[in-house]
Design a protein around this nucleic acid. Structure first.
Lengths: 234, 234
DNA sequence: ACCTGAACACCGTTCAAGT
DNA sequence: ACCTGAACACCGTTCAAGT
């Protein structure tokens, strides 16, 4: 019989004697993602995650080597939400699709871009994304060196953009007061020292981020197109 | 007479009675930058910085509100190393100059890109950089909305690129063993699941980062040029 | 005004011990 | 195999007290 505290009445609250582990890797990642969404990157601690799982912090180390591995699992779970592009479409449409879906996945979870940035590209879903991006470029006839550069540039662009977008910007649900205070401060910079900032301050603060993203992505892909050279037929 | 311990012989080691503060804001930032270069972003703690300054950790809060402000000062000190572009040159040359010098400054200090990313754009040098970038674009006849987008995109590109460049890449003096282990692991991914990664692995790991940077920067500026519309003459 | 001592409320991680 | 208790070596920050 399982050990009980408080008497037999409360037996139904005891953990089932089925003896299966209380934390699985799946549950670990699921709860970590939920915790991230609630408290953000800086609030995500091993101790809080353990508490959420109903376990002591030390127990987590039965399932994960250290916090970096936990973050890598999180990063991969976030990338799992990015669908594969349709390999039959033109390379540009494929890269646009991956970039847009990737950004959407990063915006879907609080501080997701920071998790990705803190973590090396390991894990099946991240690798799948890299693989699909590379293969779309390669099939389009880019040189291998340019394939590597282009895939990396697009990836860097999306994560960098999402990071910037979520870090010091109002309205992401983060800290509204702090964001507002920053916006007020920024909008009231002295026009004699920073005339152009003062002139376009509202454009900087109230930007349409979808439009800006498309501008950057389009520009980047335009520029990459110029470096494509058709493969000789065989 | 100043209080002494250990006897009069050691009096010369006592702090001079000149009474001037042992830590100034200048010295604080200078030593913080040195500490950052030695131990990196994660090793930069208030306590270690205090020790380096020969003072208790609590004393730092006489000069700085919190760690975020310290990081912002650091970010501004790093940006101080970026020279102004020549306002008489064409907009593209100015943006190229700023981008290249900015990247150089970020690579000149360990984890500099992380410091910039952790910190809002405050501080005279960062603002000066933003101002110069905006004014170069504005003088070139870009729409105000595009001016804001373009300046932000170039800034995001450089910081994102430098972050990616220093974070998980070999040879930055960071942790050579860990980098090597990652490179070996990455190069030996199963070719049946990740055929394109396997095919171009060495291109991904041994990339010429200067070349990649220029490719991305050139592509971005090409794309921005397309969105320029000449101002009507007056 | 600036620094110290001491404390508070946390961290990630290890390790012997239990079952 | 998996979890607990307890500890270790840290964090950022506050605050009364000293000069």
């Amino acid at each position: 019989v399982a050990r009980r505290r408080g008497g037999a009445i409360f037996a139904i609250w005891d953990r089932p004697p089925g003896r299966r582990p209380v934390v699985t890797r799946d549950r670990l990642v699921r709860e970590a993602l939920g915790l991230l969404d609630e408290v953000g990157f800086d609030g995500l601690t091993m101790r809080r995650l353990a508490e959420r799982l109903g376990v002591q912090a030390a127990s987590l180390y039965n399932h994960v080597a250290d916090k970096l591995e936990l973050l890598a699992l999180l990063a991969d779970a976030i990338c799992a939400e990015v669908p594969d592009p349709d390999g039959r479409r033109p390379w540009r449409a494929q890269l646009e699709a991956v970039a847009r879906e990737y950004r959407r996945a990063l915006l879907a979870h609080r501080d997701a871009a920071r998790v990705l940035g803190a973590t090396p590209p390991v894990g099946p879903n991240r690798l799948r994304l890299i693989e699909r991006t590379l293969s779309a470029l390669r099939a389009a006839g880019f040189d291998d060196a340019v394939v590597a550069d282009a895939a990396n540039l697009v990836n860097t662009f999306v994560t960098g953009f999402a990071l910037d977008e979520t870090q010091w910007r109002a309205g992401v649900g983060d800290d509204q007061d702090r964001s507002d205070a920053f916006a007020r401060w920024f909008a009231s910079l002295p026009a004699d020292r920073y005339p152009t900032i003062a002139a376009v301050a509202e454009r900087l603060l109230d930007a349409d981020m979808d439009r800006r993203f498309e501008l950057g992505l389009g520009a980047l892909l335009d520029g990459l197109e110029r470096h494509r050279q058709a493969r000789r037929l065989e």
